[in-house]
Design a protein around this nucleic acid. Structure first.
Length: 482
RNA sequence: GGCCCCAUCGUCUAGCGGUUAGGACGGCGGAUUCUCAUUCCGUCAACCGGGGUUCGAUUCCCCGUGGGGUCACCA
């Protein structure tokens, strides 16, 4: 395969959702695998739905996932501009060529008429379709209308009853009869092209070799086939990817809590986890090895492994993958990642936190709740403090812990000291015939005000000696008062 | 509704005429452990239904059923 050129062509009409990002990922992987080019093109032909923030979000998502583009906004390239609103003249020019050749025609029907037509057809249980009222217009009528400035659109004349087929790289052979397709509007009355014209013109002019897109585009592919044929252009290879569905099996939407990649990023999901997860949603490696790095993915990705079925988004697997990749991080990398979530801690403290948290969180934003007792005030009830222990015994335990900790020579507590601390405590537990679990539970509650914490002795390294003793005193006070 | 596509554990999937139907996530059970986790071990769990074709169908064909997509001057 030579000169592989794949574009990702989002439209800036809102926050791009995760299904779109997944197709971008497939395109990028496939381009990289084949030493081709990955091209970003912005399809902003719908003026009414433009969302000014979404362009930046598109860039941010691609950057976060590491899907760099070789041509496109910010990168340039030989086939620009890569923003469709800057190519308007091109689309008009090509649309008029089609009109001249008789493959397209002017239509002066108003939106109101089209709306009435549609309602009528629906009433009669016909599928809504333009009735070609303007198809037979004479050149004279057209010229008159044009001269009078009557708003117009340009429509593609679809063949009447022809089976249009193509070999889809994912879906296999698909046949659709042209008669089920409407005479698609190519140029809107505001002078902007519709998706169908723009995508065909640009894909051809930009020498796109493979079109990767979602299955929702299958039913408009016949229009594109006719367009390519009318222009006399060769059709790129085309692959329609399955959709990501919500838990109720319908197209993923905000109702399912469907989020953009950016939102997952904010929650503390790693790009390598997201990539691994997304690629597994609709693709499967031959050897069943599911944990895959970006490099392995580039090597192994193939269209044969792409499913035809839609896939249901399941968070559990994403969480598993994220937890896995989090565990793979070195402590210093993890500490760096933690900065955003634990700004109160120094880097050294975050290094300690990293070791304590790495094995027990699935996403970064869970870090804070687990470790905040080391830098925030705590509050808890005597009941929590006692747990299963008896009051006097709990007192003895805390007194003993206090004694042991107060013997630490410095304010800072080191790992060596923690080891010693543990030894001494275990001896003490044995001597008093306590249960190890009981002792640590009381101790944990006094230190953290919680029953679930990272290893409590190691946590002391962040808390420091002075605060640790303070907390033991507070706990003792609570017991005395109760 | 018309058209198009799809159908293996709860989920993601392997399988491409003969398999004890495999893996992963999750679930459940156990071991380790100061809690929670991690780690390790074990375990439950699926071929949508009906017809064909065939010596033999999860696999091929047809029909149901179910699911999805699409029918805009939106992409």
């Amino acid at each position: 395969m030579k000169d592989v050129r794949i574009r990702f062509a989002p439209s800036p009409t809102g926050t791009p959702h995760i299904g779109n990002s997944r197709i971008a990922l497939f395109g990028w992987l496939f381009a990289r695998k084949n030493k081709g080019k990955f091209i970003l093109r912005i399809e902003d032909t719908d003026q009414s739905r433009l969302d000014p923030d979404s362009l930046q979000k598109i860039y941010d998502i691609l950057k976060f996932l590491g899907l760099n583009w070789d041509e496109g906004p910010g990168e340039g390239g030989d086939y620009g501009p890569y923003i469709q609103s800057e190519r308007l003249d091109l689309y008009k020019e090509y649309a008029h060529k089609l009109v001249q050749k008789g493959y397209a025609y002017y239509c002066f029907c108003t939106k109101e008429r089209l709306e009435e037509l549609r309602i009528d057809q629906q009433k009669n249980k016909q599928s809504p379709k333009y009735d070609r009222k303007c198809y037979g217009l004479s050149q004279k009528e057209i010229d008159q209308n044009l001269k009078r400035g009557v708003p117009y659109v340009i429509r593609l004349k679809m063949p009447d009853n022809e089976v249009l087929k193509w070999n889809d790289l994912v879906q296999g052979n698909i046949e659709i009869n042209s008669s089920v397709c409407d005479d698609q509007i190519l140029i809107k009355s505001d002078g902007y092209p519709t998706y169908h014209l723009a995508v065909v013109v640009d894909d051809h002019l930009m020498k796109i070799s493979h079109i990767f897109r979602g299955v929702e585009w299958i039913s408009s592919t016949p229009k594109h086939i006719v367009l390519y044929r009318s222009f006399g252009w060769k059709m790129p290879e085309i692959a329609h990817f399955p959709l990501i569905l919500g838990k109720d099996r319908s197209k993923l939407s905000k109702r399912h809590g469907a989020k953009s990649v950016l939102e997952y990023k904010d929650e503390g999901y790693l790009s390598e986890a997201l990539i691994n997860f997304l690629v597994l949603l609709g693709w499967h490696p031959k050897d069943d090895k599911e944990i895959l790095s970006r490099e392995e993915l580039i090597k192994k990705i193939d269209l044969k492994g792409v499913q035809k079925q839609n896939a249901i988004f399941n968070l559990e697997k994403l969480d598993f993958l994220n937890a896995y990749y989090l565990k793979q991080k070195s402590s210093s990398d993890f500490a760096l990642l933690l900065e955003e979530y634990l700004p109160e801690l120094s880097f050294d403290q975050r290094m300690i936190a990293a070791q304590l948290l790495k094995d027990r969180i699935t996403k970064l934003n869970q870090a804070r709740d687990l470790i905040k007792f080391t830098f925030e005030d705590i509050d808890y009830s005597v009941d929590l403090l006692l747990g299963k222990a008896e009051k006097n015994q709990a007192k003895q335990m805390l007194e003993s812990a206090k004694k042991i900790i107060s013997k630490i020579p410095s304010q800072d507590i080191t790992l060596d000291q923690i080891d010693k601390l543990q030894k001494i405590m275990l001896e003490e537990i044995k001597k008093n015939n306590w249960k190890t679990g009981d002792f640590f539970m009381v101790f944990r509650s006094a230190i953290a005000g919680a029953k679930i914490t990272p290893p409590i002795l190691e946590s002391l390294m962040i808390l420091g000696k002075e605060k640790s003793l303070e907390r033991l005193d507070v706990a003792l006070g609570k017991l005395n008062k109760s």
